[in-house]
């Protein structure tokens, strides 16, 4: 994600090629699943909500990302479980 945030003021200047590639990767993931960044955010929130109904999860350690490998899109969720729900 460092590339994605590097355009922010005060960050180290990255060349525009890297910025272009990062932006492209992000927009293509959204295009391919036909969801906006906001909808993807909502999907993640709902996913977390459903899982936390069953188990206690570590909300700070959650990593849910949409990625592409080749021409396939993939949703990867890494959600640390603290223990059983009481």
């Amino acid at each position: 994600m460092s590339g994605f945030f590097s355009w922010l003021p005060g960050q180290k200047k990255t060349n525009s090629r890297d910025v272009a590639k990062d932006r492209l990767q992000l927009v293509l993931v959204q295009d391919r699943v036909n969801l906006s960044a906001q909808q993807i955010g909502e999907m993640k929130d709902e996913l977390i909500e459903v899982i936390s109904r069953y188990v206690e999860i570590d909300r700070d350690g959650i990593d849910i990302t949409l990625t592409r490998s080749g021409r396939q899109s993939r949703l990867t969720a890494d959600i640390p479980i603290l223990g059983a729900r009481h």
């Binding site: 060349n15 525009s16 090629r17 890297d18 272009a20 590639k21 492209l24 990767q25 293509l28």
Partner: peptide, 12 residues
């Protein structure tokens, strides 16, 4: 470093 390379485009 100011244009996507061919490798970048093929990769994406």
């Amino acid at each position: 470093g100011d244009m996507l390379s061919t490798e970048d485009v093929v990769d994406v």
